[in-house]
Design a protein around this nucleic acid. Structure first.
Lengths: 83, 83
DNA sequence: GCGCAATATAGCAAATGGCGCATAAATGGA
DNA sequence: TCCATTTATGCGCCATTTGCTATATTGCGC
């Protein structure tokens, strides 16, 4: 599960899909990340003003991380280039 | 220029290095991103409470983007920005 | 349908971001 | 070294986060 993260909504969707794939509830992710279930909910629905450290905590709780890369058109070829 | 972005400091360092590579000042990036020079400064020094939308605006101004990927083992290349 | 877990919403307090404006400090080129 | 540019810091201000405690509401299995 990897993907572009250009907007808060894209980030939230990816977090939600990954969380479900891991079989975790928002509360469980919140416990791992030191955040409340409500905060996870807000992030997954695309809160653009979420704090950076909050997003990073959620990603870590899901064994995910950001990678900063040159902007691409998001093709499969672009992904191969990086991994 | 691609790199791990696991902490606010890593993100700030990558932004700064990319900005210099592009030959831009903080003010110029701020203008492109709709932010003040002071805000760019804070982000580059690793402000952990920066807003997600602010970070995304800066990345866009530098033709960068986030990619969300599974957490990796942190190779030397990934951690280059600590040197 | 029922019922329980999961998710979304609400009000309040504390904390903090980013802006405007100003200015100090650091950096770099000639 | 000098000076212009760049970067960092400070303060007041308003908006918004997140935590807390509760509570709707939705969703899913049976």
């Amino acid at each position: 599960m990897t993907g572009l993260a250009r907007t808060p909504n894209q980030i939230g969707n990816l977090i939600r899909r990954t969380r479900k794939k891991r079989g975790l509830s928002q509360s469980q992710v919140g416990a791992r990340a030191g955040l409340r279930q409500e905060t996870i909910s807000l992030i997954e629905t695309g809160n653009p003003a979420a704090k950076l450290e909050t997003i990073l905590a959620v990603l870590a709780a899901l064994d995910l991380e950001f990678r900063i890369v040159p902007r691409t058109k998001g093709t499969a070829a672009d992904l191969e280039d990086i991994f």
